[in-house]
Structure formats: C-alpha cells, structure tokens
C-alpha cells in the first residue's frame, strides 16, 4: 500500500525535453489512468515511476520515500506490459512464480501464493501450460498473476489491453477493475483508449506533449473539461467544436469574428427533437448516418463545418436531406478561442 507522488518531474533525452515538470499525487489505493495520444509522455512517466527510465529532474516518491535513484526491484512495485512479457519457455506456473524468484519466502508460501493468484485469475486449470497454448487474454492474466504474487505496494500497467481484440478488451477491463476493488492496491494505468480511462479510473490524468492538462474523476472531466483538447479526447464520438458568437443564452455558428469556441457533445445535439429555447440550433445537410440501434448518429455539414448529432433509433433521414439539430441550454461548453481554455457554459 502506498501513495505515489510526482513532484516537478521532468524527462529529457539529450536536449529534447519530453516531460515538462509534472506534479501529481496518487493517494493510497487509487486507480489512476494516464491517457493521451501517442507521444504525450504517459508511458515515459510510468516507466520513470517503475525505475526503467532515469529521472531528469524533480522527484518521485513512493510511500513517502524518494526513489529517483532506487533500483526498480527496491521500489516495491509490479508492472504489466503491453506485450505481456511472459516467458515462452516457462509454464504458466513458472511464469507466475518468477515474480517471486528473488523473494526469501519459504517454498510452501511461494507455491500457495502462486495457487492463490491463479485461483483469483481463473488460471488454475492452465498452470502447467506453456504461454503459446494460451489466448491473448489468458496471457495477460498470467502477466497480472506474476505481478500479483509479489504483493506490491502499487501496480503499474502499460497499455495492457492494446494487443487484445475489442471483446476481450471489454472483458479484461471489468476483470482488472474488479481486481482493484478486491485488492485495493494503488494502480497507475497507461492507455491511449479513452473508453478504458472512463470505465476503469478513479481519476483520469489527461496528458499532452509532456504536460498534464487535467487530473480529475472521469465524470468531472466529461462534464467540465478544462480545454478543447480534453473535451474532444474524452467522450465518444468526439465533442463538436465550432467558432461561434454568443449573445445572451444563445450561441450561433459564426465563421466571421467569432467570440468563443463552442463545444457540444453529440449526445447533447439532438435531431428531430425541437425543444424550448435551445442554446444552439443548427441546420445542415446530412452526409452519413450511423444507426447504432438505440440511437442513430447523424453526420451533417453546416456552413462548411462537420457535426455529429444523435437521433432516435429509427431515424430515417437520407444523405442530402436537411436536418435541424438543437442543444438544450446548459449543455454547450464555451472555450476561449485563443487559449482554448474552458470559460463556462451556455
């Protein structure tokens, strides 16, 4: 059990600085997910916490102890990698037990821990198999098992689900989340998939270009993104963002002399549901419709801008037809056009 603190943490390769002094406190037992596009520095940050990358500046403390120069093995952490890093020449049992290779525990204790981890992860029947006889999801569970047996103060996950297909990924998301609820160990988890971030995290850390843009619980980020990037990165499909003019409670799309950037989530931009005094009303030509069953995503163009709106499940509009989409008052996010920071709602 441990808290992890990053204090003005920087990382530079030669002269190129890739992490620009980030601060973050991860309280004991929190499940924190680092999310961002590739190259944003999330993996580098995790690898610095693990001790696989040297720290260029600032401090990392784990459980109150400064660990900048501490060997990975002495940090009391365990890590799960994207490509599982389980050894093809060892059985599942040997792989899981390898996490205890240097441990001074008695033999019986080691064996019972391996059994317990296998039990938790549903691997008991597979213990004597080689990794080549396992599916991707099972391999990743073996890797988690190897991390679990060490009883570490914190787990680090580096894009652990990226190599799995969509269905398995959804299943493993739930398994990892349930595992966290059972063990209560601090988890730092890196992903580029905002769905993983939303569904699993106690707190999401959105990163871009070596900076932390926002660190907050998932719904807080969804409801109150601090800037346009975060707003568009979290939530699917992405938020519609367009230049606009604002007068009173009404926002109108305006190419010329915009005073704000307005953002509306597709879920809030509704077709064929005229409301009373909407904050945004847009009219445009339908380009594509994507029926999802319970609703239909309607792509349309208004004044040269592409928008995604939602319509009821059996929405029948065809490409080329004109539609009108509205967003209710209070659902429109407003951003400063220069700084792209959030300035309020309309």
């Amino acid at each position: 059990m441990a808290t992890i603190q990053l204090n003005k943490l920087t990382k530079a390769y030669g002269k190129a600085e890739v992490i620009h002094g980030i601060d973050l406190d991860i309280p004991d037992g929190e499940f924190v997910v680092f999310v961002g596009p590739s190259g944003c520095g999330k993996s580098t940050t995790l690898r610095m916490i693990a001790g696989l990358e040297e720290v260029s500046g600032g401090d990392i403390t784990i459980g109150g102890r400064r660990v900048n120069e501490v060997d990975p093995k002495q940090r009391d952490i365990a890590m799960v990698f994207q490509n599982y890093a389980i050894y093809p020449h060892m059985s599942v049992r040997q792989n899981i037990a390898f996490g205890l290779y240097t441990s001074k525990l008695p033999k019986e204790e080691k064996a019972s821990r391996v059994e317990a981890a296998a039990e938790t992860l549903g691997l008991t029947a597979l213990l004597e198999r080689r990794p080549s006889a396992l599916s991707g999801g099972q391999r990743q569970r073996v890797a988690i098992g190897r991390a679990m047996v060490r009883n570490p103060a914190a787990f680090l996950f580096d894009e652990p689900l990226s190599n799995l297909d969509a269905q398995l990924r959804a299943q493993m998301r739930i398994e990892i989340k349930a595992l966290h609820q059972r063990l209560g160990t601090t988890i730092a988890y890196v992903t580029h998939d905002q769905v993983e971030a939303m569904t699993m995290a106690d707190r999401i850390v959105v990163m871009r270009d070596g900076h932390i843009l926002q660190a907050a619980p998932p719904m807080e980020i969804y409801d109150n993104p601090v800037d346009i990037f975060t707003a568009r990165f979290i939530g699917t499909p992405s938020m519609n963002v367009f230049p606009a003019q604002q007068s009173g409670g009404v926002v109108t799309l305006a190419e010329a002399a915009p005073t704000v950037m307005a953002g509306v989530r597709p879920q809030d931009l509704k077709v064929a549901e005229p409301g009373i005094a909407p904050a945004v009303a847009l009219e445009g030509l339908v380009t594509v419709t994507e029926p999802l069953g319970h609703e239909t995503l309607v792509h349309f163009t208004a004044q040269g801008h592409d928008f995604i709106a939602t319509a009821p499940g059996h929405f029948g509009a065809l490409p080329g037809q004109t539609v009108r989409a509205e967003a209710a008052a209070g659902t429109v996010h407003l951003f400063d056009p220069k700084t792209e920071k959030a300035v309020g709602r309309a």
Partner: peptide, 24 residues
Amino acid sequence: TYYEAARIDGVGDWAILRKITLPL
C-alpha cells in the same frame, strides 16, 4: 520487455542470463 519485467521483479544479471537469455 522480458528484461525490464525481470528487472522490476528484482532478478539479477546472472539469473537473467541463465533463466531468460540462454533459453530464449
């Protein structure tokens, strides 16, 4: 990552050579 995983698990150079490098 095989080596990185071993380093995090605290396995020494000699053990890495015997248990990971040579078999692979």
